[in-house]
Write a protein that binds this DNA or RNA. Structure first.
Lengths: 203, 203
DNA sequence: GTCTATACTGTGATAGAC
DNA sequence: GTCTATCACAGTATAGAC
């Protein structure tokens, strides 16, 4: 993967001699996204990434105060990309029916799923810069799933004797764990396992 | 945590000027185990660990070719320690009844649970030195759980309409994911969530 | 405001003295 | 078997070009 440094996309607006800062940052995120998704990120130093982008590693540091910030930005970008499809699927068909598709959506980017898994494991440390963010993210996901379960229950598609807080956490935990096992063995059918669990919950 | 460097335990046999190699390595593993379990390991460099042990970082590198090897050795040591209690619990009461205790066993060492989670995430990379080992470990755990489920089924304590391969993976995946959420929020009751899932499986 | 050049500190690894 | 010395490379910080 080599990069043309002499040419810039015509779409990049200029302000004086250099590209617009926010657009430039955005471009870096997008390209880093592709690099991470393909090559993973563990063995990539800031210097290597910068080399791929055709700039010095200091230029990267200018846009992203720390390596952690770059990883976080890439990760946020993925969340932004996923959200529209996610919300559409939920609105149209509800959590239970949309689940296989949501899983498949992740399967196209194993590098990012691994990035996610590793970041979540590393951010367990209380003094990690992404700790609070990740913790809140887990809670929000649980709350989202709980709400979806509630909706399904109201529609009479779910058993009424469930502790939804408990069930939601069981579901998100299982999804995480399955994703992990899938990373080690692509033949693991994440959707099928989740669907099997949902079968226990159906009315 | 400071270390006396002038004195050595009387139990350490000498061979010439220095301690016996294998015993020394063993001692290092045990003490590193304690350090990791208490302090975590992420921010610990080989130099810091060596300082705690009262030797130079090069001495550690002699016993463990790479940092990865040290972590692996510590992790193996944990597995060795856990196995007897695990097997005894399984033999006496079976998986379903022993589960809460097994979970509690891990809860005493959050540092090691995090070590485990992080190592497993990092070892996803195919070129990671611990990749094959970790992959095999996941498979073995799934197989163990599957066998236990089979035994429970034979005793009539489990539904007979289960796909045990699927169920075993659901169970191990959920356990992993719950452990992760517990690391972020110690109020998460891992055993209760697992037990709730097992309730679906009971005959 | 954005970049390059450069230096600082700390890392894991290794060679060779003892 | 353990040490000191040294290495290449990491992330970070800053000075100054433009």
């Amino acid at each position: 993967m080599t990069v043309e440094t002499t040419e810039q996309p015509a779409s990049v607006k200029r302000r004086g001699r250099y590209a617009n800062g926010l657009q430039r940052r955005d471009e870096f995120i997008d390209r880093a996204f592709e690099i991470f998704a393909t090559h993973g990120f563990q063995r990539l130093s800031l210097r290597k990434i910068a080399e791929e982008l055709g700039v010095s590693h200091a230029a990267l540091s200018y846009h992203f105060p720390s390596k952690e910030d770059l990883l976080q930005a890439v990760f946020d970008r993925q969340a932004e990309r996923d959200r529209p499809l996610l919300e559409q699927s939920l609105a149209e068909r509800g959590l239970l029916a949309a689940l296989p598709e949501l899983v498949r959506q992740n399967e196209d980017f194993p590098g990012l799923v691994q990035l996610d898994a590793t970041m979540q494991a590393e951010a367990i440390r209380k003094d990690h810069p992404g700790h609070e963010f990740t913790h809140r993210r887990i809670d929000l996901f649980n709350a989202d799933v709980r709400r979806e379960l509630e909706r399904e229950q109201e529609k009479g598609r779910l058993r009424t004797d469930l502790d939804l807080d408990l069930t939601a956490r069981q579901l998100t935990a299982m999804a995480r764990g399955l994703q992990m096992q899938w990373l080690y063995d692509p033949t693991v059918d994440v959707a099928a396992h989740l669907d099997g669990f949902l079968a226990f919950l159906r009315a």
